[in-house]
Nucleic acid binder design. Structure first.
Length: 621
RNA sequence: GGGGCUGUAGCUCAGCCGGAUAGAGCGACGGUUUCCUAAACCGUAGGUCGUGGGUUCGAGUCCCGCCAGCCCCGCCA
C-alpha cells in the first residue's frame, strides 16, 4: 500500500523526511544512469521499465547512509566491468548540483556498489526539523491510492474475538496485542480505523447455556442486576456436564436453540444476559491492556446470512452436495484431487462460520455497510486456508470492490518452554488473566529485590504502578518483537529480563533520559539550539533517529510489528552507547545543548514507538 | 493422499523487491564505575543458513526434489 510496488524508492504519496531524501536520491541516480547509458535507458523504457538504481539503506555503517547496487546488473548487457559502469554513473552525478548539496563524494566499493553518505549538516538539519514536528517526521495521509479513485473508506482491523461465555485465554493474547498494535500504527498514519471485536456470540452452545440459566437462576431473567453469574467458565462447565450426561436436558437445550433463533423474547433475554456478563469480564482485560474495541459479534450478521446464500445461488456459484450448499473452490483440491468445497449452509439448513464470515466481509466492504477500503483479519495461522476460501468466494461473488484489499494477518502458536502449546501444569488452557497477573507479580518481585539491593525506598503506589507497567509491557513486547508468523515461545524470565531485546531495557532508556531532565537538563529549551555534533556516538544516534519514518511506513505496509520493535531496540542500544561514552550535562556549550536535543528526540521517538506498540513509558523505575 | 507454515550460533530470534566478510540478544569467558540510575558499556569465542539440485555476475533470500516438526483438509469456530 504505502510506498509499495516493485520499486522501493519510487515517488509515492508519502512525503516523509528520510523517505523523501531517498526518493530524491533515487531520482538523481536514475537520471545519472540515463545520461551515462542512453541506449540502455531506451531499451529499458521500450520494455516498459526504467533503469533501477537499486538504492537501499547501507548494509553497514562504514558504507555510509545508502548504497546503490544498480551498476551490477548492467555489466552483462553492456559488456563492461561493473566498477566502470559505477564510475560512469558517479561522473554524471557530479554534474548535478542538487546531489552535491545532499551527499558527500560517492565511493565505489566492492564489485561496483556506489556508497552514498549524506552531508552532516543535512542530517543535523533533519534532526532540527523533527524536533519542531510533533509527529517526528512521520506524515499523515499516506495510501491515498495515487488517484485511482480508491474510496477513502475505513481500514477495518478484526482482532481479539473471544467467545461469549468462555474466558479469554492465552489463545486470544496474540490476536489482541498484534491487532491493537496494527490498529495504532494505521491510526497514526491517519487512516480511519474501525477496530472490530468479532466475538463468538451465536451458536448451538447457547441452547445448553440458556437452559441451564433458566433452571439454576430463573430470577436473573426478572432482575438482571440482582444476580451475578460469577465465574462464567464454571457455569459453562456445569452446563456442558449436564448436556453430556442428561438426555432430557439435551432435548430441552436443542429446543432452546430453535427458540433463540426464532426470536423468542425470553430466550433472547437470557442470551443477552450471558453476553453482558462475558462483556464485563472481557472489558476488565481490555482496560488493563489499554485496548479499545468495538464489539460487533457474529450475531450482528444473522439478518444477512440468507441473502449471502441466495445471492451466491443467483450468481450460479452454489452447488448442493450431499445436502449441503457449497461453493467449490478454484485451485484448491482436497482428497482424490476433487475441488474443495466451502460449505455455506449445512444440510439441516443452519449456517456456519463460513456463512457468517462471508456476510461480514460483504457488509464491511459494502457502501450500505462499512464501505471499508481495507480489511485485516488478525487470527492464528491455522485459519489460513479457511480465509483463503472465504476471500476467494467473496471475490468471485463480486463483494470485494476494485482497489480494496482484504488480508489475513496470521500468527503462530504460543508455546511453553517445552516447545509445545502453552498449558498449565495440570494441562489446562492458561487463562489470560492469570498470565497477566503472573507477569505483574514477577515484575513486582524483581523491583522489590532491586530496591532492597540498592537501598532505595519507594511507596506502594510507585511499586504498583511500575510493576503493572513493566509486567504488561513485557508481555506485549515479547509477543510483538518476534516475527508473528512463527510460533512464539512464552517465557516470563526472558520477557522480564532487564537486558537484551525486552520491554524493560527499552523502558530503562526512557528513564535514563528522564533522569537527565531531572538533574537539570532543560530538554525543551535545547530543541531550539543550533545543533553541532562532533562525536561518533552522536552521529550514530542522529542516523538511527532519522530512520523512524521509513520504519513506520514499512510496518504499515507489511503489518509486521517486530520491525518496529527491532528499530526501537537498536535505537535504545545506540542511545545507551551515547549515554555511556558522551557526557551530556557536564559538556560545554554548544555540545551540551545539542546533546540535550538528541536526548529529547530520542525520548520522543521511544515514547512514540512504544505507544504504537501499546506500551506506556515511565519516568522512574 | 492434498495444502499451508516452520527449519539460521548451545538457547531465543532478526535478516526489509537477491548484493559486500550471515547479524542481534541471552548464556559462556575476559574487562570497565571519584561522573546524568552499572537495569549500562567494551571485548573474545561460537554458524556446512535442514538437505540435494537449478536459475543468476551474485542465493539464507527465487524455482524444483527430499527430510523433519507443527497446523488445516464437508456440514465446530
Amino acid at each position: 500500500m504505502a510506498c509499495a510496488g516493485d520499486d522501493r524508492w519510487a515517488p509515492c504519496p508519502c512525503s516523509a523526511a528520510m523517505l523523501r531524501i531517498a526518493q530524491t536520491l533515487n531520482g538523481q541516480l536514475r537520471a545519472a544512469m540515463e545520461r551515462a547509458f542512453p541506449e540502455a535507458a531506451q531499451q529499458a523504457s521500450a520494455a516498459g521499465q526504467a533503469l533501477d538504481p537499486q538504492l537501499a539503506p547501507a548494509s553497514k555503517p562504514e558504507f555510509g547512509d545508502f548504497q546503490a547496487n544498480g551498476a551490477l546488473p548492467l555489466a552483462k548487457p553492456l559488456g563492461q566491468p561493473p566498477r566502470a559502469i559505477a564510475q560512469a554513473i558517479v561522473a554524471q552525478l557530479a554534474s548535478e548540483p542538487a546531489f552535491a548539496q545532499l551527499c558527500l563524494e560517492p565511493v565505489i566499493a566492492g564489485p561496483g556498489f556506489i556508497n552514498l553518505t549524506l552531508r552532516p549538516e543535512r542530517l543535523a538539519a533533519e534532526v532540527g526539523a523533527r524536533l519542531a514536528d510533533p509527529r517526528l517526521g512521520v506524515p499523515v495521509g499516506a495510501n491515498q491510492g495515487a488517484g485511482q479513485g480508491v474510496s477513502a473508506g475505513p481500514v477495518i482491523v478484526d482482532f481479539s474475538s473471544p467467545n461469549i461465555a468462555k474466558e479469554m485465554h492465552v489463545g486470544h493474547l496474540r490476536s489482541t496485542i498484534i491487532g491493537d498494535c496494527l490498529a495504532r500504527v494505521l491510526e497514526f498514519r491517519g487512516h480511519p480505523v474501525l477496530r472490530l471485536n468479532h466475538v463468538g456470540d451465536w451458536g448451538t452452545q447457547f441452547g445448553m447455556l440458556i437452559t441451564h440459566l433458566k433452571q439454576v437462576a430463573p430470577e436473573a431473567l426478572e432482575h438482571p442486576d440482582a444476580v451475578d453469574l460469577g465465574d462464567l467458565v464454571a457455569f459453562y462447565r456445569q452446563a456442558k456436564a449436564r448436556f453430556d450426561a442428561d438426555e432430557a436436558f439435551q432435548a430441552t437445550a436443542r429446543e432452546e436453540v430453535v427458540k433463540l433463533q426464532g426470536g423468542d423474547p425470553v430466550s433472547l433475554k437470557a442470551w443477552g444476559l450471558l453476553c453482558e456478563q462475558s462483556r464485563r469480564e472481557f472489558q476488565q482485560i481490555y482496560d488493563r491492556l489499554d485496548i479499545r474495541l468495538v464489539e460487533r459479534g457474529e450475531s450482528f450478521y444473522n439478518p444477512y446470512l440468507q441473502k449471502v446464500v441466495d445471492d451466491l445461488n443467483a450468481a450460479t456459484l452454489l452447488v448442493t452436495d450431499d445436502g449441503a450448499r457449497c461453493v467449490f473452490l478454484e485451485g484448491m483440491s482436497g482428497k482424490d484431487g476433487k475441488p474443495l468445497p466451502l460449505i455455506v449452509q449445512k444440510r439441516d439448513g443452519g449456517f456456519n462460520y463460513a456463512s457468517t464470515d462471508l456476510a461480514a466481509i460483504r457488509y464491511r466492504f459494502s457502501q450500505a455497510g462499512d464501505g471499508a477500503s481495507r480489511v485485516i483479519y488478525v487470527t492464528d495461522a491455522g485459519q489460513a486456508s479457511h480465509f483463503a476460501g472465504v476471500f476467494q468466494v467473496a471475490r468471485r461473488a463480486g463483494w470485494i470492490p476494485q482497489g480494496a484489499s482484504v488480508e489475513h494477518v496470521p500468527f503462530g502458536l504460543v508455546q511453553g518452554d517445552d516447545g509445545k502449546k502453552l498449558k498449565t501444569r495440570s494441562g489446562d488452557t492458561v487463562r489470560l488473566k492469570d498470565l497477566l497477573d503472573g507477569a505483574v507479580q514477577r515484575a513486582e518481585a524483581d523491583l522489590r529485590l532491586r530496591l532492597d539491593q540498592e537501598g532505595r525506598t519507594e511507596d506502594g503506589a510507585f511499586i504498583q504502578h511500575v510493576a503493572h507497567t513493566v509486567g504488561l509491557a513485557a508481555v506485549k513486547y515479547a509477543d510483538l518483537s518476534t516475527n508473528r508468523i512463527t510460533n512464539y515461545q512464552f517465557s516470563f524470565d526472558r520477557m522480564l529480563a532487564l537486558t537484551g531485546n525486552t520491554a524493560p531495557y527499552l523502558l530503562y532508556a526512557v528513564v535514563r533520559i528522564a533522569g537527565i531532565a531531572r538533574k537539570g537538563g532543560d530538554l525543551e529549551a535545547a530543541a531550539a539550539a543550533h545543533l553541532t555534533f562532533t562525536e561518533a556516538q552522536e552521529w550514530a544516534l542522529v542516523r538511527e533517529l532519522l530512520k523512524l519514518d521509513a520504519v513506520i511506513a514499512e510496518v504499515e505496509e507489511e503489518l509486521l510489528p517486530n520491525r518496529l520493535c527491532s528499530y526501537l531496540f537498536e535505537l535504545s542500544q545506540v542511545f545507551n552507547r551515547f549515554y555511556d561514552q558522551v557526557p551530556v550535562l557536564k559538556a560545554e556549550e554548544p555540545a551540551r545543548s545539542s546533546r540535550l536535543a538528541l536526548c529529547l528526540l530520542t525520548t520522543g521517538t521511544l515514547k512514540l514507538g512504544l505507544g504504537l506498540l501499546g506500551i506506556p513509558t515511565l519516568e522512574r523505575m
